[in-house]
């Protein structure tokens, strides 16, 4: 059975840490940086659990700042 692996990149400087991607993610892949902030002082989103990502793009769809780009591969 084909397994799907995904990954996202977050434009850290564009991210405002609104957390909507974290909520939208069905696999709990994303979190906000607990300590680190970007130049504007926001705790930006990152893949805290990268193995879980299925590349569904839910996070990117709801992202108000178009910070997230999504990649997906099918593993045989």
């Amino acid at each position: 059975m084909a397994k799907i692996r995904g990954a996202v990149t977050v434009n850290e400087e564009r991210c405002k840490g609104c957390n909507l991607c974290v909520v939208a993610c069905p696999t709990q892949t994303l979190s906000l940086q607990p300590k680190e902030v970007n130049d504007r002082g926001y705790h930006f989103a990152y893949m805290s659990n990268p193995e879980a990502c299925i590349g569904c793009a839910s996070c990117a769809l709801v992202c108000p700042d178009a910070c997230i780009e999504v990649y997906k591969v099918k593993l045989d």
């Binding site: 434009n11 957390n19 793009a57 990117a60 108000p64 178009a66 780009e69 999504v70």
Partner: peptide, 24 residues
Amino acid sequence: QVYKKPALLNDNYMHYCPGCSHGV
């Protein structure tokens, strides 16, 4: 790549508050 920022949405940092629906 399966999802990316549309090219027509430029790189200007949006003035909207975090989480604002306008951005979407």
